[in-house]
Design a protein around this nucleic acid. Structure first.
Lengths: 196, 196, 196, 196
DNA sequence: AATGAATGAGCTTTCATTCAT
DNA sequence: GATGAATGAAAGCTCATTCAT
């Protein structure tokens, strides 16, 4: 990468990081482009060299952060060492929850945008042979992929939507209390599938 | 209610209905107070007689719509006739999903705001003796209320977050396909509790 | 007209007059809305209550000024007292040229926008029975109206385009020198028609 | 011309041609330097190597295009073969109108900028002995040159301003209908001179 | 000579809010 | 209570221009 290219990347990252701080601390609606560039220390015009508007930047940020989150989980959770499918999935989810608990700003930001679509994209980016990972985790033949997708989709949404309030507000209970329940739910859902 | 009182209520409802249409069709951020009053056919100043700002109006709208939704389910689902707890809960949830499917605008509006807190408030409004309804539905002693809350909280979040994409985008599958799975998940979760 | 209505008209006229001064002194392109409102002593938002943008204001100004110009000529030139058609037309044109010579800013503004279409509209506004005026000036039956239109169109364009440079720059000669020629041209054109 | 010189000329022509397209399609005011260089496929800085700003480029373009127009008329109209002065002038004008009719973009661009000054310059460029051409066309002694200039000036303005609307909008009539009238007007003007 | 990233002044436009009527 | 003209702060965005490469 040339010197110029490097500098561009730095500028872009600078803007994204600054925006992330502002979006999480004061929300998308109350953050103006002026706020972002002022804090990032660049000129207003520079913003428009990299992003169409603040919604464009926000979207790119959501995608980026989600991908980071999933990739970390796939790489660091050690799910490969777990025995059953349920254990593998739980290992991945626990890693994600662990990251979010450590980084509540990130949780607040991703909010309820943790989604199946982004997960699918993250897997693809990390390992293009996406059905293979599925098999590795869930130990099922590709023929049932649709059912698998429904299962993972459901669990993902369940995790994403329950943990927001649990981690950030301890409502109705805190994460420590909730986690055992969550594991049991996940096992229940997967067992249901197995039985079905 | 006096003639004047009635008129005020009409004006307020007019503004809320108009705002609902605009919020669902173009989003909260892109809807201005000017838009609302223009379409409602009242003067700008009038808005401020009833609401602090558009966020105030929005919040009132979310609460109102959610309460309507839950109340309809409690009154019309006939959950009392179902035998098991799971059947009762499923009856209530199916009624809610039926309403949302018939009214996608409402679903889009409530978005992922279908929440446990609102549900609790709706129950309270409908029947002040809120633990009693819990017992009626779930057949458990008040001592386990915390556990019950977790259970209902989880199922509610599960339903709210999965059905958004399923109903509006048929992603990953349509509601007809998804519903049997959802029922099985709910039963699995509840059976898990029973077993636990 | 109510007090409020009067005030609105005053505000609008104020903006138009101010804009006219700025457009003529520094051109449309170099005049910003900020310039206009600042000099007019009103808030920026007020501009948008009356005009879509500066081009909208400019267009309204051109139409307004042209109409004033023509109306003055129709009312003050005394063309009715002239004998021949050519004399009548020349009386009208001389009045217009007299106005423009006295008011070079106006000439500069209207620039080459003095047009047949605006003339037609001005006549209509002043006296709805527009063919009647034509007959009065040109003494011709309505059957030849198309030919009349061509004649007047040509003379109007001729006057409009030649006099700009003649009055403002005395190029190739000054108005005093040019006027006799112009009269001769007009008579020549009209005689040509009569002959044809 | 050296290789480098040639390259420079190519770049400059490239910019001018691109600008011409943009100016005619979207107007001077709405065309930015960014638009021009982007479409021309050169860097922004390059623009400033050849032009001061977009107005400079525009002016050069007007002059260039007008000169081309007049030169074509002087070289291709065959006016030398016409007998009378009026016929010669009409031959030249018809050639110009023919060019403009074939190329409405050019007409739109030159707009009402077809002017006596440019014409004079074009003649000078084409044939430095400019009074001689005048004599050739109009068959008059150099002593009356001022009168000649008035005559040509008038006819030029007449043609320029009437034909814009006639060719582009067929208003008040189309060119085919208008041309015979125009010829008669020109003859009438010239006869008036002769008589005067 | 050519580039194009960066600038930032300054433009247009929006819109919540006020207040005299 | 209801109105809506007026406000002006502040947003979004553009673009001519510069200058290190």
């Amino acid at each position: 990468m040339s010197r110029v290219e490097e500098n561009k990347l730095l500028k872009k990252n600078n803007l994204m990081n600054t925006a992330f701080q502002l979006f999480t601390s004061q929300g998308l609606a109350k953050t103006s482009i002026s706020d972002i560039v002022e804090r990032a220390g660049v000129a207003k015009g520079t913003f428009y060299l990299y992003f169409k508007d603040k919604y464009d930047l926000h979207e790119k940020l959501v995608i980026h952060q989600s991908e980071q989150l999933f990739q970390h989980a796939l790489e660091q959770s050690g799910y490969q060492n777990a025995e059953t499918s349920a254990d593998k999935l739980i290992a991945i989810i626990d890693d994600i929850l662990y990251q979010l608990q450590k980084n509540p700003l990130l949780l607040q930001f991703i909010n309820k945008n943790l989604s199946w679509g982004v997960f699918r994209r993250a897997i693809n980016k990390w390992e293009p042979d996406y059905p293979a990972i599925f098999e590795e985790i869930l130990g099922t033949s590709p023929a049932d992929r649709k059912t698998l997708e429904i299962e993972v989709y459901t669990i993902l949404e369940l995790v994403g939507s329950t943990c927001h309030s649990v981690i950030l507000n301890s409502d109705p209970v805190g994460l420590d209390t909730y986690l055992p329940y969550l594991h049991r739910f996940i096992r229940a859902i997967m067992a249901g599938f197995a039985a079905g």
